[in-house]
Design a protein around this nucleic acid. Structure first.
Length: 316
DNA sequence: ACGATTTGACCATC
DNA sequence: GATGGTCAAATCGT
């Protein structure tokens, strides 16, 4: 393990220095371009504008990759690409090939195709995936404050597995981006409830979103109505267990969001409110984890500022 | 019918 | 061989 770690650190350093060089070169190029275009040009020179746009995109990409490289060694908060930027591929600095190029073409995992080739894809991808940037967040459930911790996950996640982990009281849940097949987005997420403190959930992200929802519009229009807010990235699980509490979540989320009208906070609340089954019967027979993990579905993360609606019973 | 979740099985890694 | 991560068929919910 240590060897791998050292190797990763080395790779990261190398990548960082290479990217820094590239970024410097791009900056110089931008300076030269602006020099070349400014004397004779009027403000409406389309070529110069295009150059500038391109340069900004290049620089922006470099910056993002560098930021992502830092993620893999330290636990940052989930970072949404800078507003206004178009980021078609964000993993190029970490993975030898971007997710998009791993497969060559987007392919529905559930689609046909020989299982053999599929297996090969799987093996290939799993190797590459291990090199994706990875970081962890911890989130605490607090009876007074709802959820605490970094919570700006606005993405739609789809659960693809759950596993009992050795030495852990609670199973680990595995999620991937809902848009994996449609947009070739390879972001994944693991949710592990803490052993020592059941009110704490450890969220491990791997890879960054390359899907559209990863590049939310700089300003999205205020919701027409609270209920309509649900329409953006299609929530994966919202429809699973609608109930009154869920609805009250939606409403409160909206109210909250309206108060945070800047681009950074607008997405603080996922469209998918938490669902939990305490309303159902036989809860007393549920395992200690009962639906806590489900309840803490990543599609569902709540902002720290979220008012408390969570009844005591779901905390344990 | 369609999409999401569940869960046993498979595979890679250690 | 044990473990973690993922797949995919079955199932569920809308």
């Amino acid at each position: 393990m240590e060897g791998n770690k050292a190797m990763l650190v080395w790779e990261q350093k190398t990548l960082q220095s290479e990217l820094s060089l590239g970024m410097e070169a791009a900056k110089k190029l931008r300076a030269r371009l602006s020099e070349a275009s400014s004397p004779s040009s009027s403000s409406s020179c389309p070529a110069a504008e295009t150059n500038d746009i391109l340069m900004n995109e290049i620089l922006s990409s470099y910056e993002k990759v560098l930021v992502m490289l830092n993620w893999s060694s330290s636990p940052p908060v989930q970072h949404i690409p800078a507003t206004g930027d178009v980021v078609p591929v964000v993993n190029s600095g970490v993975v030898p090939e971007s997710p998009a190029s791993i497969n060559g073409s987007p392919r529905s995992e559930d689609g046909g195709g020989s299982s053999e080739s599929h297996r090969q894809d799987h093996i290939f991808n799993s190797r590459k995936r291990k090199m994706l940037p990875k970081w962890t967040e911890k989130v605490r459930i607090s009876p007074e404050r709802g959820l605490e911790g970094p919570q700006d996950d606005v993405f739609s996640w789809r659960k693809y597995g759950q596993k009992d982990i050795l030495g852990a009281k609670f199973p680990r849940s595995y999620y991937r981006c809902t848009h994996r097949s449609t947009q070739n987005c390879w972001a994944t997420k693991q949710v592990q409830r803490s052993d020592s403190d059941p009110t704490v959930f450890e969220l491990t992200y791997r890879g960054t979103h390359t899907c559209q929802q990863g590049t939310p519009p700089p300003h999205h229009p205020p919701p027409a109505s609270p209920e309509k807010r649900n329409t953006r990235p299609k929530p994966t699980t919202t429809a699973q267990k609608p109930n009154d509490i869920l609805e009250s979540f939606k409403t409160s989320l909206t109210v909250r969001t309206e108060g945070l009208d800047d681009a950074d906070n607008v997405f603080s609340f996922p469209n998918t409110p938490p669902f939990y089954d305490f309303g159902t019967t036989n809860d007393e027979f549920s395992s200690p984890i009962f639906d806590a993990v489900d309840w803490f579905n990543p599609t569902v993360e709540i902002d720290t500022t979220f008012p408390t609606f969570l009844p005591e019973s779901i905390y344990y």
